[in-house]
Design a protein around this nucleic acid. Structure first.
Length: 417
RNA sequence: CGGGGCGUAGUAUACCGGUAGUACGUCUGCUUUGGGAGCAGAUAGACCGAGUUCGAUUCUCGGCGCCCCGACCA
């Protein structure tokens, strides 16, 4: 992608109404556009990151045996009445709308009800279970107050996975597998070291639910971490009894603010029962379906990566989710030889499948470097006076380390850092 | 939803009961050119409505919007 063709530009100043680090950097870099309070649009660069994160999650969900679907954002109130979640007193941040022909609709607050209902239409025997269904879909929450940039908006895309099992044991086993898959996801997007499996309140179905909490001063939650065991306890369930049950020593726990990037919990049989989802066991008798629900906010995850990995110069993307593999910056300043060198490198890199953002704009070096730092590609290739046919400067964004490498090294992405 | 703050250009701000000025940014051109350069020119603004007034961006009221703390929440 040639940078001069990109319809977004970087900006020096962040909008005054944006306080959070993640949204400031993403807006300055042209990754997102703020539509209104709590509502953000993804621009080309932002969408590329978003899709890469989505794909990592998708791979892990598929590895679990998950089957991808796409459920509507428009929802039938009847299903929610069946589970007693339609009333605004029960769910206070519903977005609801009306049909011209009369009647109400809900805008997807979450998708337990419609997906459970759809599964009920397909499942009737023990042979039909277990089933794991997931999708990436917009969720709408009529928040009284939005905050933290893209971390908490009124509309956001969530990956939600629902598991349908024949027994509590089957659910427990799958639940553990999802936990491992989630750890894979957070490691792959670059948050592994600072993300902790956290015990949180479980509601009426189980004693605990589990959250994945990424340590950040920008977080809204408070957790207590056992760094050796690599688990944490959410402040909301932090009691002596809980510590005892989990065999944790209060003196070893470290308090931290954190961002909830994922959540997994057991739903028991409540929704299945309410929506008529049951199956015939081997004896031909009706049996209950045990459900689990597993969410990751994709946009929040993106924002969290920006928030915790950025530095004073801008965004620092992990290679796994960067919009481009490399940022090619030419400093030809009118020198056609240098420009030719950069142009052909651009073509060759693309030919071997390297994703490259090519800054061939006619601007000064300082501006290009500043933009490159802000945009945060993991590597920057600089083509200037010192470059030759087979000698190029490459800079690693995360620590600024520089190397001079051959063209072959660039084409094979073996930079030797 | 409780509490607080704020609405003048993309950003930061100034002045004023007589329709707005500066800086940065942005755009154009020229000169420059390895860390946001210089010169010249240009662009762009009073949230909306009602009231008071000869006249409202300014005063009053209402609405809308935005931000922050708390509660709530992926």
């Amino acid at each position: 992608m040639k940078q001069s063709h990109l319809f977004t530009k970087t900006r020096k100043d962040a909008p005054k109404d944006e306080v959070s680090e993640n949204a400031q950097l993403l807006i300055r870099g042209g990754y997102i556009h703020k539509e209104m309070a709590g509502v953000y649009d993804l621009l080309p660069l932002g969408l590329r990151v978003f899709k890469k994160i989505e794909n990592i999650i998708r791979e892990e969900m598929n590895a679990l045996g998950g089957q991808e679907v796409s459920f509507s954002v428009l929802q039938n109130p009847e299903l929610w009445k069946a589970t007693d979640r339609w009333d605004d007193k029960k769910i206070d941040n519903w977005f609801k709308t009306e049909l011209k022909s009369g009647g109400e609709l809900g805008l997807s607050f979450t998708h337990e009800e419609p997906i459970t209902k759809a599964v009920a239409m397909q499942v009737s025997s023990y042979r039909d279970l277990p089933r794991y269904v997931y999708h990436f879909q917009s969720k709408f929450r009529n928040e009284l107050r939005t905050k933290s940039g893209i971390m908490r908006g009124r509309e956001f895309v969530m990956k939600d996975l629902y598991s349908f099992c024949r027994s509590e044991e089957e659910l427990d086993a799958f639940y553990k597998e999802v936990g491992i898959a989630y750890e894979n996801i957070f490691r792959r997007v670059g948050l592994g070291d600072i993300t902790y499996l956290t015990f949180a309140s479980g509601g009426v179905f189980s004693k605990f639910s589990h959250e994945f909490q990424t340590v950040s001063t920008a977080g809204e939650d408070t957790i207590y971490i056992d760094t050796e065991k690599r688990i944490a306890v959410n402040d909301e369930v932090m009691t002596e009894e809980v510590l005892e049950e989990l065999s944790l020593d209060r003196n070893k726990l470290v308090e931290a603010k954190s961002i909830e990037v994922g959540n997994i919990f057991k739903l028991g049989t409540k929704y299945a029962d309410a929506l008529g989802l049951k199956y015939k066991d081997k004896d031909g008798k009706d049996a209950e379906v045990h459900m689990g629900s597993y969410g990751i906010g994709v946009g929040r995850l993106l924002g969290t990566v920006v928030e915790v990995l950025c530095d004073e110069k801008g965004i620092v993307w992990p290679a796994s989710i960067a919009p481009f593999d490399v940022h090619l910056v030419e400093l030809s300043q009118g020198d056609e030889k240098i420009r030719g060198l950069a142009d052909s490198l651009y073509e060759e890199l693309q030919a071997v499948g390297v994703e490259v953002l090519y800054d061939e704009r006619d601007t000064r070096a300082g501006e290009k470097f500043a933009d490159s730092d802000l945009l945060g590609m993991p590597y920057r290739i600089v083509v200037g006076r010192q470059s030759t046919e087979d000698s190029f400067e490459i800079v690693r964004r995360v620590d600024g380390l520089k190397k001079t490498v051959s063209k072959r090294a660039l084409l094979t992405q073996n930079y030797g850092f």
